[in-house]
Amino acid sequence: MPKVVSVHSYRGGTGKSNFTANLATTIAMTGKRVGVIDTDLPSPGIHSLFCLEPEQTTKTLNSYLWGDCEIQDAAYNISSNVGITDAGELFLVPASVRADDIAKILKDGYDVKLLNDGFRKLVKGLELDYLFIDTHPGLSKETFLSIAISHILILILRPDKQDYQGTAVTVDVARQLKVRNLMLAVNKVHSLLNGDALRQRIEETYSESVAGLFPLSEDMVQLASEGVFCVKYQDHPISQEFRKVAQKIIEAN
């Protein structure tokens, strides 16, 4: 059965899109059909990690939500952009970066029912094994929906007080929405912090498991949102950590 994985963070700047891109790619590289959908309509961005230029994407998630096309028509096969050479396919449904389109979303909103129907059609139409939802930070009707329909919810947080508090709120919401699998991923961990102690403290605080700890990495910054890190540096410790998280996603019920 296909799995829907939502990647969310309470605040922006946690590295959510980068995390989503790497995790989705890692799973696609195991030979799976993986879709990524950018529901961060007010501030889209994941397309640049997948080297998909806005000029190439005439149809976007926005087009679907406004009834201009079917959702499958807004899905782009980005396997070769990313450098997936063997089995496995990766698709992206980007959101529009046109200022006018973003303004329309902010002004009129959209029907979350359509978003839900779109997820289902995409999974069926592209015969996906995994659908990753890159969400808009913070809590809104749309993030509630993404959380509610997910088999697995991954919450990204940085080790700081604001993220701790915000994540606590999000965990409450996720429990109210009866999410089956909740995983935490800690990003941008300073090299001076003791990883094991941090992991233990976070797991005790939220009574949820930490799926991965990712260091604050200059190597990753150097790539500057162009390309997927785990493809370019397959043996890097960060890529290995992504493979561990991917394994947990694959094994989750």
Binding site: V112, K113, N116, D117, R120, K141, F144, L145, A148, I149, D172, V173, Q176, L177
Partner: peptide, 22 residues
């Protein structure tokens, strides 16, 4: 408020609505 918002989202995303959509 949280419960009622959660319940409205559940109605949108419930398996039954998926059935109706099909």
């Amino acid at each position: 408020n949280l419960e009622s918002l959660a319940s409205s989202i559940q109605a949108v995303a419930s398996p039954f609505r998926g059935y109706l959509q099909d």
